[in-house]
């Protein structure tokens, strides 16, 4: 089993193999994504009952919460790729790392925007310096730093390693930043919002939420595969397999 996994892992590292593999999986993933999203949205927007405190406007959590989860998950993906890049110098991990960054940044942005749209009717303002909002904003800056550093270095193999180091440093710092911000927030708790006590979520809301979380994960994979395929073609534009791909 382990041997099989190692073999699979090494085969995945080969750009032409990954290009074909990702291409063959894309249609299936799209089907899964569509089913999950339709089911999740129908369950969340139609079937789930309105909240007794927040009315209808709570429904934004079906986008907001999965987006926020993804924003952290993708950074983990990037840091894991970073370790692979530094240890095994795997080209594909570099590509996955840098292709994840814009997707992660978009999810972070989406989480921020939906959060503040929800905040307007709930808190009466689009933005409060709440601990989660603030650390999410800093996370966005971390993503932009990765993208910016990659763009600034011309030699892309070197850029891949630079970004790998940065992603790992960021990974160590994210919990520190998160808890510092939380601490800061509890200190500066002037006339801010009274946090709602969290009641355990009812299953009619939980199921669509989990469906949406899954659908966002699948969407990430779809989007990542497409980006990685394009980036591979660009990087390997002088190699045999790309030439053969376009001759036929």
């Amino acid at each position: 089993m382990f041997k099989w996994f190692v073999k699979w892992f090494h085969r995945m590292g080969s750009p032409p193999h990954f290009y074909r593999f990702a291409g063959s999986w894309l249609p299936w993933l799209t089907v899964v994504f569509t089913v999950l999203t339709v089911a999740g949205l129908y369950g969340g927007l139609v079937l789930a009952p309105p909240d007794y405190q927040q009315g209808e406007s709570y429904r934004i959590i079906f986008i907001h919460v999965p987006a926020a989860w993804m924003s952290m998950f993708i950074y983990m993906v990037m840091a894991s790729c970073g370790i692979i890049v530094l240890v095994w110098r795997m080209k594909l991990a570099e590509v996955v790392l840098i292709c994840s960054a814009p997707i992660g940044a978009s999810f972070t942005f989406l989480a921020l925007v939906t959060g503040s749209l929800w905040g307007k009717p709930m808190w009466g303002t689009y933005w409060v310096w709440d601990a989660r909002l603030t650390s999410e904003l800093i996370l966005l800056f971390l993503y932009l730093g990765v993208i910016g550093l990659y763009g600034a270095i011309d030699e892309k193999r070197v850029a891949g390693r630079a970004v790998a180091i940065l992603a790992i440093v960021g990974m160590i710092n994210i919990p520190i930043i998160h808890y510092s911000v939380e601490w800061w927030n509890s200190l500066h708790q002037g006339a801010t919002v009274t946090k709602m006590d969290k009641p355990s979520i009812h299953w009619t809301m939980l199921v669509p939420l989990l469906l949406m979380a899954l659908s966002f994960k699948v969407y990430f994979i779809i989007s990542l595969f497409q980006r990685v395929r394009a980036e591979l073609l660009h990087r390997e534009r002088n190699s045999r397999w790309v030439e053969e791909l376009f001759r036929s």
Binding site: F141, L142, G145, L149, V169, N173, I176, I177, S180, W183
Partner: peptide, 20 residues
């Protein structure tokens, strides 16, 4: 031109020190 990009990389990591 490392200057601008340096601030983008470093400032978010400075946040905990600033807070405490």
């Amino acid at each position: 031109k490392g200057g601008i990009i340096l601030s983008l990389l470093v400032l978010p990591l400075y946040v905990p020190v600033l807070i405490f």
